[in-house]
Design a protein around this nucleic acid. Sequence first.
DNA 1: TGACTTAGTGTAGCGATTACACTATCGTCC
DNA 2: GGACGATAGTGTAATCGCTACACTAAGTCA
Lengths: 230, 230
Amino acid sequence: MTGPYCYRYPHPAVTTDICVFTIRDAQLQVLLIRRGGEPFRGQWALPGGFLDPHEDLDRCAARELAEETGLAGLYLEQLYTFGRPDRDPRERVVSVAYFALVPSQRLVVRAASDAADAAWHPFSALPPLAFDHGEILALAHQRLTAKLGYSGIAFEFLPNTFTLSDLQRIYEILLGAPVDKRNFRKWALGLARIEDTGERRCSGSHRPARLYRLKASHRDDAIAYPGALS
Amino acid sequence: MTGPYCYRYPHPAVTTDICVFTIRDAQLQVLLIRRGGEPFRGQWALPGGFLDPHEDLDRCAARELAEETGLAGLYLEQLYTFGRPDRDPRERVVSVAYFALVPSQRLVVRAASDAADAAWHPFSALPPLAFDHGEILALAHQRLTAKLGYSGIAFEFLPNTFTLSDLQRIYEILLGAPVDKRNFRKWALGLARIEDTGERRCSGSHRPARLYRLKASHRDDAIAYPGALS
DNA sequence: TGACTTAGTGTAGCGATTACACTATCGTCC
DNA sequence: GGACGATAGTGTAATCGCTACACTAAGTCA
């Protein structure tokens, strides 16, 4: 392939790929797009794409995510950089992987032009993935569960207001194990990061639950749920 | 600049930069090289260099480290990827940063051709650094101290055999605070990862210390010194 | 109004972490 | 060879945090 961009030494292409997680139907789910072009046409892959010449890496990840899925403004964190020489059959591609979390409510996903389709898949039943995206997702999942043990990352799955039962459900799904209600609440109520809104949520024929809210002032507090250490 | 390597879209250059830490003179120290060429000629920088076309990223980091400093076979871990569009004045460069640890004894450092000089610098008194290498080192240091809390990374600073006092000194230097001797030894002796060699080390006019050794079988055990949580 | 469903609450036991000070063993110097 | 100096090595009691565990409260709906 020849073109107008020439260098004295070979340069790899650089892309970002984004692992977007959410919790839906009481399951951890991942956003995948069906590839519209070669290679791996028709297979599922992570959203992502090539780095623009004057664009920061974080910016690239956010842009690709918005372009391919319509999602914007979510928690986005650099994960790891994958660079095996043969990971893309077309040319040498170094991919900076990101991982992102979406609250369960913001699930509207739009497939864009260069992606034939975009859909959520349960993490426990992923289809075969293009390139080394399976490996990338495995690492993202590992990071996600590890961060439960030392950061307040679980809150990123929640909307602005939530009940303590909502929060507990998140932890139970991510940990894959039930959590004691009283111990969990004792712990959660001790966190500086959340506060009572004074409101309640009525959702069915039972006692309404208090609604809590995140305090922006403590956004980056390290929060470790002790039961997450297992 | 024109050359034989042409692409349809612009490609950034990709490099690796390595933050090498050791402990020397009761201080955390970092390996820097003095730049022999432009830009930033004569300034201190992290060892590192351009990715070869058929080389994995990890491989590139290890190779550059060996070429520029003579160090090989040490603990090497990918840290983060830096890609600000203006971080290199010559052209767009995306750098995959690594961090590496060397035992205090293996300190022989050799400056190679393209690096005018290589030397250890106390982390607490770093000279001005080229590019965004100051930022990279700050992140590496953060990762290093964070990992003390949940991994056995401190052992990477030790030679094959060591005394418990050696180990304690590592923790005290990295944590920047004294550690209770009895509690520390109780903890260390409970680790499955170390074993008594039966030998002793005599180093001065005082009681000799038992020598311990790492068990290879437990190389990747997670080890968290409780005092490291502060 | 009774049944159902989820929200919300306290305590006692256990295990882990912490604080704390003296004895042991070697070399050296007189 | 005895005293000194220097580092190695050792145990216990108090505290704190985590865990296990079962019932009452407040709504809806039939």
